[in-house]
Design a protein around this nucleic acid. Structure first.
Lengths: 188, 188
DNA sequence: ACGGTGATGTCATCCACTGACATCACCGTA
DNA sequence: TACGGTGATGTCAGTGGATGACATCACCGT
């Protein structure tokens, strides 16, 4: 047993989400989150670059999944097939038991412009990383950018649907149907 | 003559840009900007919602130009023609004499992630406003969103080129050629 | 002459965030 | 067993962005 309770980062994340859901993002101070997690404010900022980041740090693993799928795809796979593989890899991060968490998080973000800003930045960063991965596969511009955008936009659309109030379908299914819709649109 | 020098907002904007360019965005305090403009820090926050906003408040007029062009277009004009009209209206905001200003502003934004966040939010807001304008023309989804995205992405691409170091072409020309490229891509 | 208005100043305060330094359980090693 | 290094945390002081409350006073219309 360590000198302190282990897993401070997780405790901070959970305390933050719960306090944000209760009292709103702005009215919750970092000091309150830290106290709820049993650490000091200073420790919060050792685990998260800023107050917003406590809601977004999972993005790193998601990005690894996306990029890993692109990098690991067959060398001669068509770009759209690679996009589909990346979406499947991403979908693994969103099992049914995580849906309620994602809904709560989505409500918090929707209520705060600053958090929406951060979300846009994360999506843009993800798109850049994907563009780079497609380039490493030998794809030229603008095909690399377009493929990356396709993957990220499709993911975003599917994720938004997945967290909608009465939505029942699985994340994988929503990705598939978003892909189908896009295919139909661009074929027109 | 007023009790104070007129046009405090412009003085603040200009002082901010010049100080940011000199010493960097982060190392410049709002108090310094206010002092350079001959007002107090409190007055800065009466003109701009936050420190970042001093670099982005022109966006409101740009958005009006975009939306106005969509609203004022012929009732039976094709979506792509409306997009072109919106781009022409936007281009009027970027005459040659504004290019150096835009380049400087671009360098400041490129050096600071927080400012990039804000830029993404502005583009997203613009896209939403355009989507709404297209809807009011009777366009259904997803055509409304796609048209809005087309306009905003094209604008962004052209603007980025326009502020590139050695670029000579006019903003209108860059919009036209970006539109052509997109047309070629989607026709493929 | 006079009261209303609006842009600004002044002051106090909150809170996000950072740097510097101290603490101390744990772990590997002599 | 003793001992020195390591890493996660605590403590403390300070900076700067942002906001609310209230005061000031040139200007303007009546």
């Amino acid at each position: 047993m360590g000198r302190w309770e282990p897993d401070a980062q997780n405790r901070l994340r959970e305390a933050a989400l719960s306090l944000f859901a209760d009292g709103g993002y702005e009215r919750t101070t970092v000091a309150e989150i830290a106290r709820a997690a049993g650490v000091t404010e200073r420790t919060f900022f050792r685990h998260f670059a800023d107050k917003r980041e406590v809601l977004f740090d999972g993005q790193a693993r998601l990005q690894d999944a996306f990029v890993g799928a692109v990098t690991g795809a067959d060398h001669d796979a068509a770009p759209l097939a690679v996009v589909a593989a990346a979406l499947d890899a991403a979908a693994a991060h969103f099992p049914p038991e995580r849906r309620e968490f994602s809904r709560q998080r989505g409500r918090i973000i929707a209520a705060n412009p600053g958090l929406q800003e951060r979300e846009l930045l994360k999506l843009a960063t993800l798109t850049d990383a994907m563009t780079e991965a497609f380039r490493r596969r030998g794809l030229a511009e603008p095909a690399a950018s377009l493929s990356a955008h396709t993957a990220v936009v499709t993911f975003h659309v599917a994720f938004t649907q997945w967290t909608a109030p009465d939505e029942q379908r699985s994340f994988v299914d929503l990705c598939r149907s978003a892909t189908q819709e896009l295919r139909a649109l661009t074929a027109g």
